[in-house]
Nucleic acid binder design. Structure first.
Lengths: 330, 330
DNA sequence: ATGAAAGCGCTAACAC
DNA sequence: GTGTTAGCGCTTTCAT
């Protein structure tokens, strides 16, 4: 069907070794033969089989990335940052979305067999699975999830900025803050809550927690229904933007006016947050992926000593959903 | 380093052929040997090398998908739909973002060497490259780009809904419509413009075209600067949502009130469009990717006869940016 | 039911 | 500078 190295060798009247050499380093064969090989190769429309090459070199020249989902801008942006660096390093990128499927562990293990290393994002598979892979010698980097012993990790700062957020809310006059989100769902949420509580403590205000079923607009909307109209907190700090947006929309339907009656904040700074005038926290998503890709490459190339754990800075973005003074008051 | 089929065979006291059989179809070896092989395999923590397997079977069990970018929800959602189906079919997914790089053609060719088939989205590589791949026997499906001779394609309906959009704008009282976007940039944009013109013609209103430098918020903002305050059209139909959002924001800064002074529409129905109350057109992005994945699989499995060209329906979503009657009038 | 052996398409010693 | 020859780890006839 498709031409192999042997076909080219025959046609050029040389050995397969010479073809191999000519293809991978033109400077180590004579100009004469180089020409003949190139001619033969282009005549036959020859492309070296990556499979043959990979098996012989015993490497895949490919890296994998595992994430829960790609809906919502969050992981998409991280994956993009990852792809940019990985492809620059000459490695193909394999993706795997787990979608919370129970078979995730097996899928990740299969994926690991197809690449030289793996980046694992967020709540996808258990630490046990990762430790198993690491034990088998699979180069690993985690991102946006709690560090695993001995495995490089990259994440975005949570507690500090959450603390600043609490301070900001207190400055705006809030005395009671409700945190919307389930700390059990992810370590990111946990850290955000912890930071918020620390900041609230310092400002002498209280924090209550309201868990949600899902971290999307629907989860926010459902939470809104559950709130007693007579007893609203001064502010609601949501675990992410989608919750906040769903919440605000549902509250508006009930006649609650943000920020006059109630302050609302999110987390992530997705595009829609700008148009909804939502106060939130911006994360360097692209960088998260890019840094993970570099860590992984360092590991694969054997350029690292101790496991690294990098925490990228985040930034509080104040908009009118939490800042009546400067905001609109529609 | 890691155990091979030979290690397992030795340990189980059988031949490598038997190990291979036991691994891929337990029912064709005796219960006795099956047990011994499984024991040995788990003792050695053996996982069959996908590379060895792939080379022997001469297939990759992987498909590729090529797209311009993943920022913005558009391609991310398509890729996700693709991944869902592909991974269900037991195939790994390789991604490649071209970012308008000149080396795109070569990158795609390399990618083609690593998988059993390819889906190519949008403005990434020229038709020439695709024809070359098709000639080499690479199974191909295009999506969100004009069909190439002999290659399956999937896309979203443009002209019909664009026509409906023109009718809607005319119904709202618009007499002059400006189309914001560069038809030269993609066939999608071209078709949207053509449909809009057809609809405008039928309604007896005029359409002008204003090309943009880029199809994002910045492009929209720049376009806003270029508009003469005194001579605004009645409506601006943008080639996508990001343009429309950037345009509206910039116009608001100049004191132009949407929709009172001017109607604005987008295309795509991204999340931010809802919060900006933007009239737009919704596309079945997830389906686009899923359908492409199925077409590709059919092709690879040899289940197709003639090339197929599927066009998925789209839907006009009217919000207050183009509908003063029912909308807000902030 | 199992084993021996010939590939799959390439790279990399090792000769010459 | 080039050819010969082993592999890389698996699947798959073909015997037995």
């Amino acid at each position: 069907m498709t031409a192999t190295i042997r076909d080219v060798a025959r046609r050029a009247g040389v050995s397969i070794a010479t073809v191999s050499r000519a293809m991978r380093d033109p400077s180590i064969v004579s100009a004469q033969t180089l020409h003949r090989v190139q001619e033969a190769a282009s005549d036959l429309d020859y492309t070296p089989s990556q499979l043959g090459r990979q098996l012989a070199e015993r490497r895949h020249a490919a890296n994998g990335i595992v994430f829960p989902d790609l809906s919502g801008p969050y992981y998409a942006e991280v994956v993009l940052g990852y792809e940019a660096v990985a492809s620059e390093l000459g490695r193909a990128v394999l993706i795997l979305a787990t979608h919370g499927r129970p078979a995730a562990a097996e899928m990740v293990t299969r994926l690991a067999g197809r690449c030289d290393g793996l980046v694992v994002l967020g709540p996808t598979v258990s630490d046990t699975v990762l430790l198993g892979l690491a034990a088998r010698g699979v180069p690993l980097v985690t991102a946006a999830r709690p560090p695993v012993a001995g495995v490089d990790s990259v994440s975005a700062e949570n507690a500090g900025t959450a603390r600043a957020l609490a301070t900001h809310l207190a400055d705006q006059g809030a005395r009671t803050v409700l945190f919307l989100g389930d700390p059990a769902l992810s370590s990111d949420v946990q850290e955000r809550l912890a930071g918020l509580e620390a900041g609230a403590d310092a400002a002498g205000i209280g924090v209550r927690v309201l868990p949600v079923s899902s971290m999307d607009e629907e989860g926010g909307a459902r939470a809104a229904e559950g709130l007693a109209s007579g007893d609203l907190p001064d502010a609601i700090a949501c675990a992410n933007d989608e919750l906040a947006l769903g919440l605000m929309t549902a509250l508006r339907t009930r006649g609650v006016v943000v920020p006059r009656d109630l302050l609302v904040t999110g987390w992530d700074d997705i595009m829609a947050a700008r148009y909804a005038e939502l106060t939130t926290v911006r994360q360097p998503l692209h960088d998260l992926g890019a840094t993970a890709a570099r860590f992984l490459d360092d590991f694969i190339a054997g350029r690292r000593s101790e496991p690294r754990h990098e925490v990228l800075p985040t930034e509080l973005i104040v908009r009118s959903s939490s800042s009546p003074a400067k905001g609109d008051n529609q």
